[in-house]
Simulated assay, not measured.
Amino acid sequence: MSTALAVQDLSYASPTTLKQLDSLLSNGGAPSARIIVLQPVMASRLLRRNTHNRNLRASAVEDYVRDIQSGSWPLNGEAIKLDVHGNVLDGQHRLHAVVKAGTPVTTFIVGGLPPETQATMDSGLRRTTSDALSLADESNATTVAAILRRVWAWEQGDRKFTRRVKPTTAECTALLKKHPEIRRSAEIATRTRAAFPHIPQSALGTAHFLFNAIDPDECTWFFQRVGDGVGLSSGHPILALRARVTSERAKEGRIPWARHLAYQVYAWNAVREDRPLSRLLVRPDTPVPNPK
């Protein structure tokens, strides 16, 4: 039975008052579950009963708001949970998101739970985008997920990759649907990293995605030479790139992720301009330049 039919056939409409909601969930004092269309006004009223909960995380609310507004909010079994007195035990972030989005969502709601069960809620490990891709049998799921997060940030205009806002799994899934070529970028990144292990696969894959959109043939050649360095003369930008990341990693142990991408962009731009580059330097905390 489809979700839409389940809601319609069982007549789980949206209650308009807390009294109606309590009546809907009443089951002789025993826990019970219903599917309802949670309207913003009801979410707001339920938040009045959110008197004992963990601190609200604004970033989580914003993630949910974006998913709700984009229509990426399926009925997945997650529930708003209430205790025997009607107080909110779990779901405050979703309730705040429904209010802020101003959009109803179809959700399970569970009532009649003992208050002490709150301590055991949300104790499991949250599924990541990589987990979701793996469950969908996506090859190179970890690398694809990492590239998707960086490409999403790039498209949001974050050229320093320092913003705390991260894409949701739904946003990453939509981005992969829009740019399926990211799968190929992940493959090239994995291959290049195996030959030259001094640049993270996510940085290689993000750079490949950006460069491939400009010139696929030159992009293929570029990453082959990043991997093997074959046939490059003194002063070639790719040699400067390989030398820089090798020496910097040996000296500092770790290079900031954005700097990895910046090094690749500077080398790529120099190759495109047929300009020699004997030494590659990037000033700290500068935005990653646009590839040409």
Rank of each mutant, 00 (worst) to 15 (best):
Q156D: 02
T190P: 01
G235K: 10
W73E: 05
D22Y: 08
L210P: 04
A243M: 13
R244Q: 09
P216S: 03
M42T: 15
N76E: 06
A141I: 03
S23M: 07
G28P: 05
H93S: 15
V165W: 10
T162H: 11
L125F: 08
S44R: 13
A136N: 14
F223T: 08
L18G: 02
P74W: 00
A6T: 04
V105T: 14
T3P: 01
S134L: 01
E218C: 01
P291R: 01
S59D: 14
K178W: 03
D9Y: 09
L261D: 10
Y263H: 15
H96I: 07
L241D: 05
A4K: 10
A13Y: 11
G205C: 04
I109F: 14
T169W: 00
F223S: 01
T3L: 07
N76R: 10
F196H: 12
P115T: 15
V245H: 09
P40F: 12
P104W: 13
A267D: 04
I35Y: 01
E252A: 12
A97K: 04
N269M: 06
Y266I: 10
G29L: 07
Q201A: 07
S59L: 13
R279T: 06
S278A: 09
V271A: 02
P287K: 13
E116Y: 10
S123T: 15
D83C: 02
R126Y: 05
L261R: 09
T117A: 10
R54V: 02
I80L: 15
Q20S: 09
E138M: 15
V144K: 03
L125Q: 06
E252S: 14
P237T: 06
A153N: 09
S233G: 01
I68C: 03
A119V: 11
D83S: 03
L95A: 09
E78K: 01
E273V: 07
H52L: 14
M42W: 11
I255K: 07
E187C: 01
A132Y: 06
R272P: 03
A58W: 08
G86E: 04
R126V: 12
A97G: 07
I214H: 00
P15R: 09
F161V: 11
D83K: 02
T16V: 05
K19F: 13
L176V: 05
S185F: 00
S247F: 12
Y12S: 05
E62N: 10
A270R: 15
N53S: 15
A195G: 03
E273T: 08
T17E: 12
G86Y: 08
V65N: 08
R279P: 00
G205E: 07
D90T: 14
I36F: 12
P167D: 10
T220I: 01
S185T: 04
V282N: 00
L82C: 10
S123L: 14
Q92L: 11
P74G: 01
M121Y: 10
K178Q: 08
W154T: 02
Y266E: 14
A119G: 05
A195Y: 00
I188L: 01
T206Q: 06
E181N: 13
G253T: 09
R225I: 04
T103V: 15
N140G: 02
L18A: 03
D83Q: 02
Y12N: 05
F223A: 03
A170L: 11
F196G: 08
P256T: 13
R259M: 08
L10M: 06
M1L: 14
D285N: 13
Q156S: 07
L148S: 11
A97R: 00
H52N: 05
Y12H: 04
P104Q: 08
A6K: 11
Q69Y: 09
A174W: 08
S2L: 11
E171C: 06
Q156F: 07
